[in-house]
Design a binder for these strands. Structure first.
Length: 571
RNA sequence: UUCCCGGUGGUGUAAUGGUAGCACAACAGAUUCUGGAUCUGUUUGUGGGGGUUCAAGUCCUCCCCGGGAAGCCA
């Protein structure tokens, strides 16, 4: 018995540090075993995939522990916030697959209560009205290495503070004339504790409270109390609020009200993109992208328009986990998640992005026949369709080479390839124009090679996708790539005059305006995602696609080992 | 210089003092009517020095490196 080791605590096995804390709280009976989280966006911009990580953590933990997750808009700064953003944020969260039921809250719902709490602190001698201006306050605050100095107004009497504060609310003073500050410690090593501002006078129309207030609580004052009012148990937020936690704890303890546990995690960074609201805004206003929902943007609306599914994003988010380590996730993991899903669900179709005409010289002039094509080799239940074939077909210009390198399996003079689902063709002639560029390829087909095989079972290495010229529907296909060409575009040496915008990838969008596709794609809708054979996964563009003229966005390419080989040999 | 936080393969993330595992990426092979998919295999890791212990990624200690903090932004 002496060598018995403590049994493994399997309930904690593999859990991230936040879930562990929650399990331990449930066990110890803290918060009476309840779990309540919240997602607290500021309605001043569009949600991006970094917010989606927070949403996944907040809503995910609540549901895993039989708790609830509120949506609360932290709308304490009326000069930056509006209802357009409120609506967009709600839409995006629902689209991602999360539900806050009727628990849609606003920090502005609590303005009156917050005011009362402030009065309580003044009465307790823990807050005072300061009449220094913003510059003076900054100057008094000191630096990380030097203590600050007390404001000359710090010792106003409680009565005077009460009077001044009510007159601030009543609108007797100009914007900026006074602020309410917590009275903590101007020498505190944590600068957030050096008498932080709680209220500022700011005459600005608020998207919900209109003009009823001319003083607004700061985030630092409003946030923790809002969580407390909502009976939140676990206030999960990002690392930059770690230094603020002692302040939030101080407020809650001085007030003597319900005290949630704040837990901070590292925000999401992705390679080849930027994630700060400011930079995303700059991309939009500088017209480096089309809009907030440009398919290259890491915004939720951008990912949606690009064709990412909510489930693939959720899968990605659970795979990256959550920790306190600052990290940058490989974009390839996100791409893997959508490929993995679409490989199983997306019907395959043939689309030629950059067509060149093939004339099958031994095929009847006016002949048409239909070949049966499987819709999805990964899913037998997806069935088959018939694809029209005729004497003239289009193939991809890059699927022919006059003078091919080794290991090129596609068409070249004299070689035989398979047209997917159809027949084998051999190139006999190459027609060029005066400038020497190829206008037509003449081929012969093997009439024995029906549906992709021959009686003699001979092997062909190359299989090409194609579209019958007589039956083709023309389309625009937008091929998207990384928005930036450097792994960490935000990392620039500004002193050397570098600008992160210089890292924009000039080839992040390539338009194929004269693509041709199977007739079945004529009425493609944004609800359908397709695999364009040998290209990747595509979706009709929600804004620009029309029934007569479909426009497709590339969601993600297929893995392309040939491209890799070429690249390697090009180097 | 002060305070807070972090450091496990290329990138993430597990390992509760007891075999450093998983995923992505990369590479190699098999297979294939998509150079897709699938399958198999391979490479690469505990920031450093001391200490405690039968045993340390894990505990102690010193150091190094990285991030955050001086809004009336959130």
């Amino acid at each position: 018995m002496s060598d018995t080791r403590p049994e493994k605590d399997t309930e904690l096995d593999g859990l991230d540090f936040i879930r562990r804390i929650v399990v331990e709280h449930k066990r110890s009976g803290r918060f009476a075993g309840k779990v309540c989280t919240r997602f607290p966006p500021e309605p001043n911009g569009y949600l991006h995939i970094g917010h989606a990580k927070a949403i996944s953590v907040d809503f995910g933990i609540a549901s895993e522990f039989e708790g609830i997750c509120n949506l609360r808009f932290d709308d304490t700064n009326p000069s930056r916030e509006n209802t357009e953003y409120v609506d967009a944020i709600k839409y995006d969260i629902r689209w991602l697959g999360y539900d806050w039921a009727d628990r849609e809250h606003y920090a502005s719902d609590y303005f009156e209560k917050l005011y009362g709490y402030a009065v309580q602190l003044i009465r307790a001698g823990k807050a005072y009205v300061d009449s220094l201006n913003a510059d003076e306050i900054r100057e008094h605050r000191g630096t990380p290495t030097e203590a600050g100095r007390n404001s000359p107004y710090r010792d106003r009497t409680i009565e005077e503070n009460l009077d001044l504060f009510s007159r601030m609310r009543a609108g007797e003073f100009d914007d900026g004339a006074h602020v309410l500050r917590a009275k903590i410690d101007m020498a505190h090593p944590n600068i957030n504790m050096r008498d932080p501002t709680m209220y500022r006078i700011r005459r600005h129309h608020h998207h919900r409270t209109g003009d009823t207030w001319c003083i607004y609580p700061t985030y630092d004052w409003a946030h923790g109390q809002s969580d407390s009012i909502e009976a939140v148990t676990h206030s999960i937020c990002t690392l930059e609020f770690e230094n603020h936690r002692p302040l939030y704890d101080w407020f809650l303890d001085e007030l003597g009200i319900h005290h949630p546990q704040q837990i901070e995690f590292a925000r999401l960074n992705l390679t080849y993109t930027v994630m700060s609201k400011r930079k995303l805004l700059e991309l939009v206003t500088g017209q480096y992208v089309e809009s907030w929902d440009d398919p290259r943007m890491p915004t939720i609306c951008g990912l949606r328009r690009r064709g990412y599914t909510p489930s693939s994003i959720r899968k990605f988010l659970t795979r990256i986990g959550v920790s306190k380590t600052e990290s940058t996730i490989d974009l390839s993991l996100l791409e893997y998640c959508i490929r993995e899903e679409l490989n199983k669900t997306a019907p395959r179709v043939m689309v030629v992005l950059d067509p060149v005409k093939v004339v099958i010289t031994n095929y009847p002039e006016d002949g048409t026949e239909y070949f049966e094509a499987v819709n999805n080799p990964e899913d037998a239940s997806a069935g088959t369709r018939s694809v029209a074939f005729s004497r003239e077909v289009y193939i991809e210009r890059s699927d022919f080479m006059m003078d091919p390198p080794k290991k090129y399996f596609r068409l070249s003079p004299g070689t035989e390839v398979r047209l997917k689902h159809a027949c084998y063709i051999t190139c006999t002639d190459v027609i060029t124009d005066d400038a020497g560029s190829i206008t037509e390829l003449h081929c012969t087909y093997d009439p024995e090679s029906r549906g992709g095989g021959t009686p003699d079972n001979r092997k062909v290495r190359g299989t090409l996708h194609w579209v019958s010229a007589a039956h083709a529907v023309s389309a625009e296909v937008r091929v998207y790539d990384h928005l930036f060409s450097t792994v960490n575009p935000a990392q620039v040496n500004e002193e050397a005059g570098e600008n992160w915008l210089e890292n924009l990838n000039p080839d992040s969008l390539v338009r194929h305006e004269h693509a041709v596709c199977e007739a079945s794609l004529n009425e493609a809708s944004v609800d359908n995602r397709y695999q364009f054979l040998r290209h990747g996964y595509f979706i009709a563009d929600a804004k620009d696609s029309t029934p007569g003229k479909p426009v497709f966005n590339r969601i993600v390419s297929l893995k392309d080992t040939w491209a890799k080989v070429q690249k390697k040999e090009g180097v």
